[in-house]
């Protein structure tokens, strides 16, 4: 027995080590490229051992620091508020759906699932948010449309509640006099920390990485989020080069576009903060185990 579990551990380590390596190597290449000189990237390609190092890419970003600093603030705000609201709404919707005895059980599941298959597209969504709710150029535009709650997450959490929260526990609590809502809050949620942490992580990543809402609903530069700014810098050049008629006229604009190493530096600047925030979520994966074990 002990022999076998050792063997499994060994297997787990070797597979995970290999995969981690495959994940880390490109990331290392990304960081190294961002501190390589443009010349060595163009002449020798991306390399782990560039001929010449240069911090020019970060100088470029430093020049835009005024903009970037503010944008970081906006991003952090929408990520925190958005993720919190999203977690609350998602679990509140998913819990009743997970109950076997809720009226119209299948209807709710279908109602949520349908939103994952069909959507009206950007134009009608935009019309509703800007005409009815008037959120254009407000901070809400970065939080509410599309991101606030995701049907996929609702269904995941529902499935989790169904499989991992024993109905007997809820009944026991109700016999003890706890109402539905108290049972949800006192019993179901604490038991569900792993999935909450998972969804929270996904939501946080979504908010952090979102540029689409900014691109669509915000034209006021003081409300740009970090990804919004980074994304403009990267994609504008792509669009420009797709439009060959314009690019001969726009020669000057082309010259001001950032170089490869800047694009790499941008990616680094965009990703690092999530890595820093990651352990916060991780804590709950481990906590999940202990709650299960204690019970």
């Amino acid at each position: 027995m002990a022999h076998e579990s050792k063997w499994i551990k060994w297997l787990a380590h070797s597979v995970l080590m290999t995969f981690s390596f495959a994940c880390l190597i490109p990331f290392a290449l990304l960081i190294i490229s961002s501190i390589s000189s443009e010349q060595s990237i163009i002449n020798n390609g991306y390399s782990f051992f560039p001929q010449e190092f240069s911090l020019k890419a970060y100088d470029y970003l430093w020049d835009h620091w005024g903009e970037l600093g503010r944008a970081y603030g906006i991003t952090i705000f929408i990520t925190v508020v958005g993720t919190a609201a999203s977690l609350a709404m998602t679990s509140m919707l998913a819990y009743p759906m997970s109950r076997q005895d809720i009226p119209w059980k299948n209807f709710w599941a279908f109602f949520v699932f349908f939103t994952l298959l069909f959507n009206g597209g950007l134009v009608p969504t935009y019309l509703i948010y800007t005409q009815v709710f008037e959120i254009k150029n407000t901070i809400w535009a970065l939080i509410v449309p599309g991101l606030l709650m995701n049907g996929f997450h609702v269904l995941l959490v529902r499935t989790f509640f169904m499989t991992s929260v024993p109905p007997a526990l809820i009944e026991a609590a109700q016999i003890d006099g706890a109402g539905e809502i108290k049972a949800f809050y006192k019993i179901v949620l604490p038991l569900s920390m792993p999935i909450m942490a998972t969804i929270g992580l996904f939501e946080a990543i979504m908010y952090w990485n979102d540029w689409f809402n900014g691109m669509t609903y915000v034209t006021d530069p003081s409300l740009f989020s970090i990804q919004n700014i980074l994304n403009r810098i990267i994609t504008d050049i792509q669009f420009l080069s797709n439009n060959s008629n314009l690019s001969s006229t726009a020669g000057e604009a082309m010259a001001e576009m950032p170089t490869t190493s800047v694009r790499m530096a941008i990616a680094v600047v965009g990703v690092l903060p999530i890595l820093i925030a990651y352990p916060f979520f991780q804590k709950y994966f481990i906590k999940g185990i202990t709650i299960g074990a204690v019970k």
């Binding site: 069909f118 009206g120 009608p124 969504t125 019309l127 509410v144 599309g146």
Partner: peptide, 8 residues
């Protein structure tokens, strides 16, 4: 967010 825009 999802149903109203479906008129689109």
């Amino acid at each position: 967010n999802n149903y109203l825009p479906m008129f689109g």
